[in-house]
Design a protein around this nucleic acid. Structure first.
Lengths: 146, 146
DNA sequence: TCTTTATTGAAAATGAATTTCAATTTCCTT
DNA sequence: AAGGAAATTGAAATTCATTTTCAATAAAGA
């Protein structure tokens, strides 16, 4: 777990070097905190979390660093129905989708190869070459549907 | 086609009466224009369209009326990756999904019952009761992928 | 017609995200 | 280690879509 984070930070460093970006204390702290935190966090929420221990790191830098992480391929940005940009760490290759509870707001991830295959098939029918896709269910989770 | 619009406007009137809302010239014009225009329009774009002929209708009212249409079930609000809210007329019962070209921005609708069935199955596996879902492919369309 | 209540439009407010800019820091190169 | 070019930072300002406020107006039932 710790190893995974170190590995990701290593990848980030490589990416930055390659792009001529500099590693900084702030980026290091923000990336660590991001990799360790729960999924689907907004820049604002991550800022609040970080700001508790690091009063000198501004929200602007958090926004910027999350964007950098997304560009480097280590995070994915998503926009759900509430229109906020949320980031989640990229987990290797597999794609997953989301079940979002309209009551408690919890986000459940799932993955289904059959769904993935079907998606590919549909896209190719339209001559579309897919770069990314996004699928969300909105409804009520087991606990909230009472 | 004209008949369809009249019918939709009738439904809107019923909804408004039931809710104690009032029908106004503005709402009538905005709804007509919306039902007749191309899909996936933003409030801003619809406002620009309407403003050409009706200088006295403000953008605020367009925003408000589109929201009203969504509440009444005659329109659906969607947020894609660009974070703008787009509205589309609701077409009876069937659900459709979207292919979005990252180059030209065109939005292709499609519908696949197999996909719908699979989605239902997945949701029930998680004990989720679905209210709505949303699925988008991002990529390059036939024309843009060169 | 009268009167209540909703609606309207302009302007102000909101809120997420981005940009600006001067001060600071990183990371080469000597 | 020191110097210097170039990137980064944080605060404040800016943007831009959307929402709210509020006084004036319009709708619709009595």
């Amino acid at each position: 777990m710790i190893k995974e984070i170190t590995e990701k930070k290593e990848r980030l460093k490589t990416y930055m070097k390659q792009k001529g970006f500099k590693s900084t204390r702030q980026r290091d702290i923000i990336a660590s905190e991001f990799f360790k935190c729960e999924d689907h966090i907004t820049a604002e929420d991550l800022y609040i979390k970080i700001n508790k221990r690091h009063k000198d790191i501004g929200s602007t830098t958090v926004y910027r660093t999350l964007k950098l992480l997304a560009e480097s391929g280590l995070a994915t940005a998503r926009v759900f129905a509430d229109q906020l940009t949320r980031y989640e760490p990229v987990s290797e290759d597999e794609h997953h989708d989301h079940l979002i509870c309209l009551d408690c707001g919890s986000i459940i991830e799932f993955e289904d190869p059959k769904l993935e295959r079907l998606q590919e098939k549909i896209a190719s029918e339209f001559g579309f070459s897919i770069v990314d896709h996004n699928m969300e269910f909105y409804g009520y989770c087991r606990d909230c549907k009472r």
